[in-house]
């Protein structure tokens, strides 16, 4: 579904991504794990068109998408839930969800998807008219995910959904991620909490200083000594 081929990304003169290649197949949850600053978020931003790769190619459903504008990529079916949620805090929950469907014109479909979002996140329905900035951190994460789903994506990019949330809430969010995946949305998940990410993912890539150093099925990586030492806190 998504193929990233030998991509290099720079911030000015600093290289953030070095010759990264990866693949996401339809229906999978694929996770990128690695330390802070390894380049995971940069990679997601490059896929969603916020950053342009200097070299390399990104192919989505057979079409090259690198260098395309972010709005074109959203239209093709990739939604990105950014790090730190980035909800529109000065607008109501409902307006945030409407903005998620900005490019769509099918009113009936939009309403249908709103209902689906409320089913996944009943909390949002309770707070529909409330200003998004007054939501708790967990609710904001739900809103950010709901907003992204309103574009009816086939591939969902999730950046650090567990960041700053209480453990119980993190569990809920990850259960919902699995649920979203089961309804047919492919997921590329960036997460610092490697244990958690590996527990729901099918496959994983380990990113270190802008390179992919290891990849495999979630089970293989969970069992790998190297990953245990570096990311799972084991001995």
């Amino acid at each position: 579904m998504l193929k990233v081929k030998n991509v290099n990304v720079f911030y000015g003169n600093i290289q953030a991504i070095r010759d990264v290649s990866l693949e996401v197949n339809e229906g999978e949850i694929v996770t990128l794990i690695g330390a802070n600053g390894a380049g995971k978020s940069t990679l997601l931003k490059t896929v969603s068109g916020l950053l342009k790769p200097k070299q390399g190619q990104i192919v989505y459903e057979g079409k090259t998408i690198n260098g395309k504008a972010a709005q074109t990529i959203v239209k093709q079916g990739i939604s990105h839930v950014p790090e730190g949620r980035r909800i529109f805090a000065n607008m109501s929950v409902e307006e945030n969800l409407e903005l998620g469907a900005f490019l769509r014109k099918d009113k009936a479909g939009i309403r249908e998807d709103m209902e689906k979002v409320y089913e996944l996140f009943p909390r949002l329905l309770e707070r529909l008219k409330q200003q998004a900035g007054t939501l708790s951190g967990g609710e904001q994460q739900m809103l950010a995910m709901g907003r992204a789903l309103m574009a009816r994506p086939r591939l969902l990019l999730l950046d650090e959904p567990s960041m700053g949330l209480a453990p119980l809430l993190v569990k809920t969010i990850f259960r919902i991620i699995e649920e979203i995946n089961k309804t047919g949305t492919t997921i590329l998940l960036v997460e610092q909490n490697a244990n958690l990410a590996l527990s729901i993912a099918h496959r994983a890539y380990v990113v270190e200083t802008g390179r992919i150093v290891l990849s495999g099925s979630a089970e293989e990586l969970t069992a790998s000594e190297q990953v245990k030492m570096a990311y799972l806190g084991g001995h």
Binding site: A69, A70, V74, I87, F88, L99, F102
Partner: peptide, 10 residues
């Protein structure tokens, strides 16, 4: 409010 997040909405 947030130009980058707006781009992600399309």
């Amino acid at each position: 409010f947030d130009a980058e997040a707006a781009r992600l909405m399309g």
